[in-house]
Design a protein around this nucleic acid. Structure first.
Ligand SMILES: [Mn+2]
Ligand SMILES: [Mn+2]
Ligand SMILES: [Zn+2]
Ligand SMILES: [Zn+2]
Lengths: 144, 144
DNA sequence: GCTATTATCGCAATTCGTTCGCAATAAGGA
DNA sequence: TCCTTATTGCGAACGAATTGCGATAATAGC
């Protein structure tokens, strides 16, 4: 299996874009965080490593990471988008507590079947899904 | 089955809030739009009806509609959230074309089973879900 | 390797969705 | 009807995201 950097370089080359240290710093930061992240977290992480990078560059790199399939949007919360790296992972379903915000990851094979079925019915070439189940977690539901 | 206005009034009363014409105008607008909507669309619709309402009031009413279960967030797009009324409806799954943005609604019973199963495993009191399947629609996939 | 071209960068200004402060208003209980 | 105070409209403020621009540096061609 190719590394995320290899995947990214291939994507960049195929698009006729330039390989730059800034873009690759973002890729490394994204795969150094094993959790959901937002632009500011990437920025703080990179700046803490004495990397000289601007937020504008991070914002401009995000669409490339999305298009190359390395990351996906996880959810919109607190006024901004949160992402997660998905290359090499399979947990793209989330269970969220509406009270405390806790998020549990899970994978459910049946959703793949739904993808296939729906794609056939509506004539779509399906490439992925995003499922969020929400409710009240064990700790929070007792107060209801 | 109660009307949406009745449900809303009950919710408002139970929360000890005040019944205002502005809030009910928003409820009516929300159920007059049989599609996904955003705050600005509500604003334009209400203003076009010579209703004197401010955007701030619409923004302040949205959380009430969410909490009362009359609407839900549909998706985040073009820099802002989009909603849909769900009271009296059951289509809360979306199939989206990544190229042209087309959205098809569908309902899938199996997702209810996933809800139940996941809720049990992780000890959550599940109240709902949001499933978005994405890919390329019939028209767009031929250009790939 | 050197040079020319131009994509990309950092920075600051801008845009735009959303929230907030506040004075005026009006809902609802006494 | 009066009083309390939640709610409103307005405009300012806030914050995420985008953009314009001059400087920089990646890459292709020589
Ligand atoms: Mn996740
Ligand atoms: Mn819908
Ligand atoms: Zn919780
Ligand atoms: Zn399409």
């Amino acid at each position: 299996m190719k590394s995320e950097i290899e995947v990214f370089r291939e994507f960049i080359r195929n698009k006729g874009l330039r390989k730059t240290p800034e873009r690759e710093q973002v890729v490394r930061a994204v795969f150094a965080i094993h959790d959901h992240f937002d632009v500011d977290e990437l920025y703080v992480l990179l700046r803490g490593q004495n990397e000289r990078i601007s937020k504008a560059t991070i914002y401009r790199t995000i669409p490339l990471l999305l298009e190359s399939g390395l990351i996906q949007e996880a959810y919109f919360e607190d006024g901004h988008l949160h992402y997660e790296h998905i290359y090499g992972h399979e947990h793209n379903c989330h269970l969220r507590c509406l009270d405390c915000g806790k998020v549990v990851e899970f994978t459910e094979e049946i959703v793949k079947d739904v993808e296939e079925k729906v794609g056939e019915i509506y004539d779509f070439l399906v490439t992925g899904h995003k499922l969020e189940v929400y409710g009240h977690c064990g700790k929070c539901k007792v107060h209801k």
